[in-house]
Amino acid sequence: MSPQGELNSFLWTIRRDPPAYLFGTIHVPYTRVWDFIPNNSKAAFHASSSVYFELDLTDPYTISGLASCQMLPHGENLQDVLPRELYRRLKRHLDYIKLMLPHWMTPDQRGKGLYADYLFNAIAGNWERKRPVWVMLMVNSLTETDIRSRGVPVLDLYLAQEAERMKKTTGAVERVEEQCHPLNGLNFSQVLFALNQTLLQHESLRAGSLQAPYTTEDLIKHYNCGDLNAVIFNHDTSQVPNFINTTLPPHEQVTAQEIDSYFRQELIYKRNERMGKRVMALLRENTDKSFFFAFGAGMA
């Protein structure tokens, strides 16, 4: 495999005839990065007859599978499982988000008929029924920057829609439960720690006493410059915040380290190995087909 020789190309060629390509994507609105993606990557996409993703985001079963995997078991509510004070802070933070949404939305979003209430319900409507780990990720994505970009497909989804429009064969190398189970596998005290840390961070952002460590803007800038900064991209790939923080007391540092190692193992190393095997199997079984694999850049 050889990286292509253009400045910011996240494109690798697998030498075979016809060629196969591996392209590193990023989970941000495609409009923020499309103009920076070199022509060789776009040409490889156009030339390939089969386009494969991590998950098939255009498949309604994938979407509903992801949704049900995030739910608490048999009718439990978040209020039943979280410590009262943590639940109270979470509710207060989400009330604040709901209040701010109309001010965060762009004129363009309003022009498309996206209403603040509708948007809030689409993202957080059933938060009381979600497992705490998914609520933690949801809180992390409820920032002004991320809200302002809602309504534009992220790069992977845009490529999937384009592939369908061009009548290419599309597929996925992962199953929903493979993406979902590792997150549900954190133990309860780790999840509470993660949710508490996330809330603390967002409460500080609200109070204006903290700058977010890695923002979506950083991610876009690094991607557009072709800088595969592992720290930033690994967190985009797993969509998991980094909790390792030198200001934590020692026992909490240990928990943060454990969570980080667990995610690295489950969401990066094991996934890479599994996806790599499936890519190789597809290539062996379809020697006459050209492939374009679009996976999160942190994986590539």
Rank of each mutant, 00 (worst) to 15 (best):
M138Q: 08
D227C: 11
Q70F: 02
I37S: 03
S50V: 11
A44L: 04
K91G: 06
D35F: 03
R89I: 01
R264L: 15
P18S: 10
Q201T: 14
V154G: 00
L90T: 06
S261I: 07
N40H: 11
T62S: 04
V28F: 03
R175K: 15
R84I: 08
Q253I: 09
K167T: 08
S68I: 09
E144T: 03
E266G: 00
S50K: 07
N8C: 12
D227I: 14
L210I: 02
L137R: 03
R284T: 02
P241A: 15
E178G: 08
G125R: 10
E252K: 13
V139G: 03
R88L: 12
E85S: 14
L86W: 03
S50T: 15
R131A: 06
V28Q: 02
V231L: 15
V135F: 02
H93S: 06
A47G: 14
G298I: 00
G151S: 02
D59T: 07
N229V: 12
L72K: 00
Q4I: 14
A172V: 01
V139A: 01
T169S: 11
K112T: 12
E6Y: 02
A47L: 06
K270H: 08
F36M: 12
E174A: 14
P102C: 09
E6F: 02
L57G: 08
H74Y: 02
N286L: 06
R92L: 13
T247Q: 08
I14G: 02
H251Y: 15
R264D: 10
I97D: 03
S50R: 11
A194L: 09
Q197T: 04
L119C: 06
I259R: 08
V133M: 08
F263G: 04
Q70T: 09
V279C: 10
T287E: 15
Q161P: 01
L228R: 07
Y96Q: 09
I123W: 04
V133Q: 04
N234Q: 14
E177F: 11
R278E: 13
F292I: 10
R264M: 13
M136E: 01
E258Y: 09
E258C: 05
R84T: 13
D17C: 05
V240E: 01
L248K: 06
I37G: 01
P132E: 09
E177W: 05
N242L: 04
N184E: 15
L55V: 00
V154K: 01
D156T: 05
Q109C: 02
S261F: 13
R88V: 14
S50D: 12
D56E: 10
S189Y: 14
S209Y: 03
N286W: 10
L228I: 10
D59P: 11
D59W: 03
A294H: 02
A212S: 09
P107G: 11
Y115H: 14
D108H: 08
T287F: 10
R89F: 01
V81M: 01
E258K: 11
S41F: 03
I63D: 01
D227G: 00
I259S: 07
G171V: 11
P38N: 09
I26W: 00
N196P: 06
G113A: 13
E54R: 05
V139Y: 04
W127E: 00
